[in-house]
Amino acid sequence: MKICVTGAAGFIGSHLCERLLQIKDVEVIGIDGLIDPGLMPVKQRNLSQLLSNPRFHFHQVDLRQANLKKLLEDVQVVYHLAALPGVRSSWGDHFQAYVDHNILATQILLEAVRELSLEKFIYISTSSVYGERVGQVAEDAIPAPLSPYGVSKLTGEYLCKVYQANYGLPLVILRYFTVYGPRQRSDMAFYRFIDGILHHRPVQIYGDGLQTRDFTFVKDCVEGTIAVLQADGVIGETINIGGKERTSIIEVIVLIEKLLNEKAILEFKEKSKGDPRNTWADIAKAQTLLKYNPISSLQTGLERQIADFCGL
């Protein structure tokens, strides 16, 4: 089976590629534009083991400019992870980049695959499309994103649905909830917390720190994502991929302090525009359709992320 992964050099994308290559007779076409020079060392590290595998073929290309029909020749499944992330950075003049990479690039990819005989097209979305919710949120909740980033990802979902309706695209949408773990980007919360505490620098907290998140360990997230390959009855479905524990930001920092045996220097900042107070995934559909069962506790996941951070 030949599978394409866009965003293959990213945090989650590289973990997904590694897991796919553990499956016998799977060949992975990895696409990544490596568009942020500041992330180049991180992405090169993410790719290092993948590039040694003869069943992994990497293409450093921008989706908006690539000869996608040639790259996607004989591909049976597409995982579309490539996107510009970040809620706080999606406001103002920065939004044009989100339009380019999250909306336009998705439409160009959809045009390239619409005549292919795909088995599945898996679009990776985000809990940011839900906006502010009370309690667990299921997939049938009406989306109400709070940030331009969330709007860009929801627009990508709607584009995919348009191609499904008109061209029979075998679409599956996965909405990830706050993924963490080894190789997390340096702008993401857990990385910043670990880095700040280890180096005795102020740890910035946006808001009061009592906001909660449904934290999802990357290995669990990838297992749910992989399960789509063999799952029946998932075409046309939108499925939440959440974690095992919902915890506040302050509680996370206390746990990291304990694991590092260091004290954090907290610096409270104004609440970020576009960040919901709480996120909490209803994963009943994933449990039914994908047999999804997140098993990593927050402590175990943080131990693994800290070990990776420290090069252990």
Rank of each mutant, 00 (worst) to 15 (best):
T238C: 14
T288H: 14
D220L: 10
D232M: 09
P294F: 11
A284S: 14
Y158A: 13
A264I: 12
W280K: 03
F215V: 07
K271S: 15
F193K: 01
K291A: 14
Y180R: 05
V162N: 05
R246D: 01
I194T: 12
L210R: 14
L259M: 09
Q211K: 01
L159F: 12
G156A: 04
V252T: 09
L255Q: 08
M188P: 02
K285S: 07
V234L: 04
D232E: 15
T225V: 14
T216W: 02
I241H: 10
I253F: 05
F193E: 00
L210G: 11
I253R: 01
V218R: 04
G274Y: 00
I173E: 09
I256Y: 01
S297H: 03
L266Y: 13
T247Q: 06
L255I: 06
G168Q: 11
R246W: 01
G196P: 03
D214Y: 01
Q211D: 06
G274K: 01
A284N: 09
K291V: 07
D187V: 12
I194A: 06
V228C: 15
L259S: 06
S248N: 04
P294S: 07
V234M: 00
A286W: 12
E237P: 02
T155N: 12
E267L: 13
I249W: 13
K153L: 03
I173Y: 07
P276M: 02
K269M: 13
Q230A: 05
G236H: 03
A165Y: 11
A281Y: 04
P182K: 09
K285T: 11
C160F: 11
N240P: 03
I194P: 00
D220F: 07
K263C: 02
L210Q: 14
Y163E: 07
L198K: 07
R192D: 06
N240H: 14
T247K: 10
F190L: 14
K263A: 07
L289W: 06
E237R: 12
P202S: 10
F193W: 14
S272G: 14
K291C: 11
P170N: 11
N278W: 03
F217E: 04
Y206W: 14
T212A: 02
L229R: 04
R213V: 00
I256C: 01
L210A: 12
L174I: 13
V254S: 05
I205N: 00
T155A: 15
V172C: 02
W280Q: 13
T279V: 12
L229N: 05
I256G: 00
Q184C: 02
S248H: 09
I226L: 15
R192K: 14
S297I: 05
V162Q: 10
I253C: 03
L174K: 07
D195C: 01
D195Q: 11
T247F: 04
Y167Q: 09
I256V: 15
D214Q: 02
A284R: 15
H199S: 12
L289F: 10
V179K: 11
A264D: 09
K161N: 15
P182S: 09
Y292S: 08
R277C: 04
A165H: 10
T212Y: 01
T212H: 01
P294Q: 08
E251G: 09
R201Y: 07
I253Q: 02
D282N: 15
Q184A: 11
E257N: 08
L229C: 09
G224F: 05
